[in-house]
Design a protein around this nucleic acid. Structure first.
Lengths: 154, 154
DNA sequence: GTTGACTCCGTATCTGACTACGGGGGTACG
DNA sequence: CGTACCCCCGTAGTCAGATACGGAGTCAAC
């Protein structure tokens, strides 16, 4: 089955304009345009779009997503391996941090059962440990030139 | 030990302007200003800032961070519990997804050892399963009014 | 008592990621 | 044939999250 850009957008639950934007950024390909006609997309495009959205909700910027997609697309293995290993470390770090949050939240939610007073939750404390660990390796703020620091749809 | 806003910024590895911005957003408090003087901050402020950054890298928007901080600050337990449970579900989902990515990346990096050809990695496939599961509950794109879909520093 | 680093505060600018607009065109169907 | 969609493409606008700027005031040290 093939898609027009509009039906592709519906299939992947994104805006048409977003697809065009991703094309401009080189994240998804633009199929060749039949003379005087309408471009045709397929499942691989839909998969790519869903992947991008997914990766974004996991905290990857579009730039990072582009890196991941470059891996998928196949580049020289040596390079792919390095890049993949770096991303892997990043992913594992995020998982570890999220587990801290999970534990803290779970504890707090448990404490809250039936209580009507106030709570002081261990969330900040639990994250602070992690943050301090990371802070040692962090440079001065002005040196940061990295991706903007923004999140993601809920 | 106490901080001026500048030393606080260094201690938490953020920009001074960012602190002011967070104050405007109500994420961190502004200590009272001694008449004609300079505000003083302490460890609790530094912790809060680190927490915010931490939470952001985990994919929470500043709005969500504000929710989490409200829990920390203590609100009625019933409400805190609900909020906490919701965030908890979200966090668990993210962990599960990240584990998919982790597995896929690890497999790929493994395959790459010593190989100089090309790779086609199972990354997209691994996420597609997850994404499709979620897609069932997703509304049309235009209905989205949620937080912007942006990530986070590397 | 001047210098230099820093604070205060308001406003302006930048970046990433969309999202909207609008003119020009094709296709489909009643 | 008309009209109702949909596509193409370029450009402009929006929104969150910072960052930057600049004049006036403060403080510590030389």
């Amino acid at each position: 089955m093939t898609y027009t850009i509009g039906s592709l957008a519906r299939a992947a639950a994104v805006n048409v304009e977003t697809i065009r934007y991703y094309q401009r950024r080189g994240l998804v390909g633009e199929p060749p345009k039949p003379p005087g006609g309408i471009r045709r997309y397929d499942e691989s495009h839909a998969g790519r779009l869903r992947f991008i959205r997914q990766a974004q909700t996991l905290g990857f910027s579009l730039g990072e997503v582009a890196d991941l997609l470059a891996l998928e697309d196949g580049c020289h293995c040596r390079e792919a391996g390095r890049l993949g290993a770096a991303k892997l470390a990043l992913v594992r770090e995020r998982i570890a941090q999220l587990r801290c949050v999970e534990k803290a939240l779970a504890g707090m939610v448990g404490q809250c059962r039936g209580n009507t007073g106030k709570v002081h939750c261990p969330l900040i404390a639990s994250l602070k440990r992690n943050a301090n660990a990371g802070a040692a390796t962090a440079g001065k703020p002005r040196e940061r030139k990295a991706a903007a620091r923004r999140p993601v749809r809920a």
